[in-house]
Design a protein around this nucleic acid. Sequence first.
DNA 1: CGTCTTTTTGACCATTTTCAATCAGTGTGG
DNA 2: CCACACTGATTGAAAATGGTCAAAAAGACG
Lengths: 262, 262
Amino acid sequence: MAARVIEKPMRKRSVADGAKQQTACRDCPRLANPSFRKFSPKELAFMQKLKTGEVVHKAGEGILLEGQKSEYVFTILEGWAIRYKLVSDGGRQILNVALPGDLIGLQSSVFGEMQHSVEAITDVRACLMRRDRLFELYSAHPGLAFDVTWLAAREEAIVSELMANVGQQPAFVRMAFIFAHIFHRAQVSRLTNGNALAFPLRQEDIADMLGLSMVHTNRTLRKLRATNCMTWNRGRVVVHDLEKLHALGMFTVPTDTARPFL
Amino acid sequence: MAARVIEKPMRKRSVADGAKQQTACRDCPRLANPSFRKFSPKELAFMQKLKTGEVVHKAGEGILLEGQKSEYVFTILEGWAIRYKLVSDGGRQILNVALPGDLIGLQSSVFGEMQHSVEAITDVRACLMRRDRLFELYSAHPGLAFDVTWLAAREEAIVSELMANVGQQPAFVRMAFIFAHIFHRAQVSRLTNGNALAFPLRQEDIADMLGLSMVHTNRTLRKLRATNCMTWNRGRVVVHDLEKLHALGMFTVPTDTARPFL
DNA sequence: CGTCTTTTTGACCATTTTCAATCAGTGTGG
DNA sequence: CCACACTGATTGAAAATGGTCAAAAAGACG
C-alpha cells in the first residue's frame, strides 16, 4: 500500500504558470472550450458576483481533508488534483483525478464535512465560492442549481465506472482502462497536444487508483508498454494507438453532452 | 464472475406487501422516520402534485437499464434493489444497494441516459416523478432542489466508500465491511428488528459487490461466521457482536444528519 | 418426489503481494 | 565537477491471496 500522502507533502512538479491572480469570469479561458455549456449573461454576472477569488495550491499540498469542514467550494481552473480516501491500515484509494472544470468540496457544503480528501498533484489554480452563498445560487438560478446536481451526479458516475474497473478486471485491463479514461478526459479538457499529454501522476498514484501494489503496477505497466499502444516517461504520455488502448482496457468513449462549469 | 442478471430475471423472494397501491404523500410512512428531514407544508403539497403515482417491480425484475432513457425518477418506498454495471466480459459490479428512501434514475434525468442498471432484489414499491417535471422542482423549491443534490452527493460518497473497501482491503475485511455497512443503513431505514435483518441478497450478489469469485466469497463467509460476530442463513442476518463486526471490517459509523427524502 | 437454484467443498492453478535489493534521475553542497 | 542524499522506478524470488474447474450437498418449491 501507499505511504500516507500527508507525511510527504511537497512534490516539485509545478505546472501552473501562476501568472494572473484574478480572472474575471467573462474572461475565463474555460468558456472558450466548447465542451462546456454556455452561460446566459445573467448567469455569468451572477457567478461573477458569487466568486470570492482565486487560490493557488502548490503541487503536493492538501486542498481538502476528509472530515474537514471547508468554507469554500472550488472550481479547478488549472492543474491536476486527486480525490482519495485513506483506509485505517495505511492504504490509500484514489477515487478519481480532478481536472480543470471539476468542482471540489461540494460534500462539505452538503454534508457539513468532507468524506474524502483532495490533494494537488501539480500546482492547482482554483476559483472560490463561499459555501454559505451556494444557497443563493439555488434560490436565484435554478439552471445553475441543476448544474451543481449535474456535476455531483457525474462524479458519482465516474467513481462507479472506476469501481467496476477495479472490482471486475485483472491488473492489465485495469491499467489500460485507467489510461484510456484519463486520456479521454484530458482531451475533453483540452489538456492534450495531439496524442501527447503532460501526465503528472507517479506509478504509486496509478497503483492506488487501481488497488494494486506498486510492484505489480510496475510489472503490469511493462506489459502495457510492450503492446506499443502508448508510452509514458518523464511525465509525458503519448498514445500511439488509441483504438488499441481502448480495446485493451475495455473502454468505450462516453457520449459527452456539453457539461456545466461553475 | 456472475452470470448476467438479465438472463434469469425471476427470483421469488417477495417481501413487499403490495397492499395499498397509492399512498398520499402526507401519509407516507417514511415521514414518520426521524432519519429523514421534515418537509414544510408547502413542500409536501408540491411533492404531492409532482408525484405521478406508484409502481411495484417484482423481485428479480430490471427497473432501469444502463443506456436507457427513463421518463421517471423513482423513490423507493419499500424493498431492496441493486445498482450495478455489467462489464464486457461477463462480470457484474454491484455499486450499491438501494433501500427505502433512495432515489433512483436521476442519472437519466441529468445525462439523458442511465450509466448503470438497477434491479429489484425483493419486490420494490416505488413512487414516481416524471423527469420533465424535475425542472419545476428546481424552479419552485430551491430547498428541494438542494435535496436532490444532497442525494446525488451521498450516492457518490457511498460508492466511494465501497470502492475504497474493494480496492484496498483483502477479502475478509471487505466482507465484514459490507455487512457492517448494509446493516447500518438498514438500521437507519428501520429495516432491522433488534439485531436481526431480513437480508435478501445471495452470496453471488455479495461476490459481485466485493469483486470476489463466488467460491472465495463462500470461503471467506465461513471465516467470518467462525468469528461468531454474525450469522446469516435463510435470508436472515443476525448480528451478535456489532462492535466486533465493525472492527473486523474497519467500519466506522458515519455521523448521519437528517437526510432528505423526495 | 423431482427439479431447480443456491451453497459448499476439494484440488489445482494464476494472479498478485511482500520482501529485499538495485538502478536511475535530480537536486544539493563542498 | 563530484560525492551524497533523496525520490521514484525496476527487478528477482518466495509466499499468499484469490480464481477456476468440477462436483456434491442443501434448500426451496410445486
